[in-house]
Design a protein around this nucleic acid. Sequence first.
DNA 1: CTTCGCCAAGTTACCGGTAACATGAACCGT
DNA 2: ACGGTTCATGTTACCGGTAACTTGGCGAAG
Lengths: 325, 325
Amino acid sequence: MRHVAERARVSRMTVSRALNKPGTVNEGLRKRVLDAVAELGYVHNQLARNLSSQRSNVIGLVLPSLENSIFAQTLKGISDILRPIGFHLMVAESTDDPEDEEQVVAAFVAQRIAGIILHSTNHTPATVRMLRSSNTPVVENGDFPAEPIDMVVSYSNRAAAKAMTLHLARLGYRKIAFAGLAANPRADQRRLGYLDALRETGLATEPSRVVSVSRGFAGGTEAIACIANRLPDTDALFCAGDVLAAGALFECDRRRWRVPGRLAIASFDDLELMRHVRPAITSLRLARYEIGHRSAQMLLDRMEQASMPVTFVDLGFEIVQRAST
Amino acid sequence: MRHVAERARVSRMTVSRALNKPGTVNEGLRKRVLDAVAELGYVHNQLARNLSSQRSNVIGLVLPSLENSIFAQTLKGISDILRPIGFHLMVAESTDDPEDEEQVVAAFVAQRIAGIILHSTNHTPATVRMLRSSNTPVVENGDFPAEPIDMVVSYSNRAAAKAMTLHLARLGYRKIAFAGLAANPRADQRRLGYLDALRETGLATEPSRVVSVSRGFAGGTEAIACIANRLPDTDALFCAGDVLAAGALFECDRRRWRVPGRLAIASFDDLELMRHVRPAITSLRLARYEIGHRSAQMLLDRMEQASMPVTFVDLGFEIVQRAST
DNA sequence: CTTCGCCAAGTTACCGGTAACATGAACCGT
DNA sequence: ACGGTTCATGTTACCGGTAACTTGGCGAAG
């Protein structure tokens, strides 16, 4: 920048102003500055700017998994907000482990990020303390936390799972099984919602049909195997994950089980895939893109005005009834 | 940091050293410093550190699309390298548009990122100039560029597509169609590879069966519709994308076409889905995770030693023969 | 013709670290 | 006992910007 200032024969301050608030600089000088910038191929040092102005143009995002495509939509929703205003996105993975998350958050706070989006609701005390004391705007996604750190944009896993289970009951299914990942906080909430619904409809007097499975398509295969062996009278399966449901459907196909004749299948999270398999799978549609979009927007709003008009958003869910139930 | 120094009754420099090179500081002082850090809840300012030391701990990644799950694997491969050494990842999307890419690269250079990974090989001259003059280590992925900016880690789209087409020919298919995205540089290369193979086997004398389709499962549907209407004697379809192939398979299912009896289907990119549909789809397996892993590793190697032992890596591909061909 | 206020441009200090050099005590061999 | 290393610590300057204040020229009001 010093070179630009010398070349344009103005002070560094004028260069800074010409680039940041063009309106406050005389047109002639501004042109000299911009010419000098172009001739020297000068690129602004955002690091120095951030340090000096005590604010950053980077947002941090912590996802449970980088590989899961459902988070890709959220990522895109965030990016679409940040890009037009020159903000950037730093991404890291927590693997749903609060200790890992703590490390990532510490690193993000050290980077003096302008805000952070946590796609989880389970944090170590140190994580919360760091975020509070550094005064970082925070949005939590993924579920509704019992004690929000700051802002929340999500849907209720428990309510959604309950609604889907009630939907299955309303369709006449009576022996509804539930398959979900073990030791996953969101799957746990969904399991609770499922049990809520059973209780409410009186189906809870039946034996519990809860299955814990592993990740990916294989989990669906396991779920069907389990039903075939241990719970053969099951008439509907609610999978707490999209890929799980697809895996289950493929396994039914292999076993020549009619869906929904032999077994109805419903899933959580409406991946595009759900619409294209045969039969198409009944699913819960969640506003994944919107979660990112609103989260980013709320962080920015908060930065502009210290006030906080909105701190809690329930984006809800929709049940998409298809041929599989 | 000043407060930490005062509390520990040492100079700021000693605090800096105690945190960065613990070995060079007397044990007693070091303990005083660390205690003070803990008591004050001091968090290092990475911004200031980067500015002062003239180096950054952030890597930039530019992907054609944030939503495509094939890139998620690459993302994970990068992240797994960066995390243990305290580096971070900034992500942006180019939508395969060199102008957009230029803007993103400009922003990344402004952030003084330590290195950049471009998942594309088509750049504006300004992009190349910026990266060269800022002396940023660069890795290009996605394909082999005609004129690499710096380092390259990829596979050859053209060679892979050629190999798969030859594989189909070897299996006895004679009327092989190709479906790919329009105006996508990687799909274009794959199309060339497909044509290379046809020429080599003499099948090129047949009419060309190249179909351009839209993105997603719908593209597969379009491809099958096109074959049904315009190219009914086609006996194999090579889809230049995983989701495309799945969409095509689902459409065949709807039309009750036997696969591979009526039509064989092969795909590019071996998503887990390919293994689970019925019939499982023959596919090209690319080392997506490895691309990220190696790219990140090469950037780091380059930073440590100004020399550049490796600048070009071909990760190759594998053909996975399954029931669909 | 002053005086006041306004606005563009310049000056100074600081953001929070680190590099490079300066200092001074302990240790060494002779 | 003395000059020469070595090593831990302190001092100074700088990284590349911006905030806050200062300066000076100019037009409108008194």
